[in-house]
Amino acid sequence: MTKAQLLRNLGGTLWPSFLTAAVASVVFFASIDPESLHMQTLPDWQISRMAGYTIGFFMFWGVGLASSLITLVLVSGGPRESQ
């Protein structure tokens, strides 16, 4: 992979997952308070709301990125289509 291709692939995976993560975080945290999530799951963990939002956002981003990367691999690799 050339450097230009690498950059383009990075852009094509990082960016859409970023956008969807932003929307997903807004929707998710509008209805779920990280504080109550924290109390119900890991109450011993000392963590603020801000940290909860941030971790949630990066989790969504990570999941989206994983999906985008797999799509990229599936679309670009594989057997060549005959022309």
Binding site: R8, G11, G12, W15, P16, L19
Partner: peptide, 12 residues
Amino acid sequence: FLREQVCIYMCP
């Protein structure tokens, strides 16, 4: 740095 590349390659 990215500028128009965002529009061309990244923007849905």
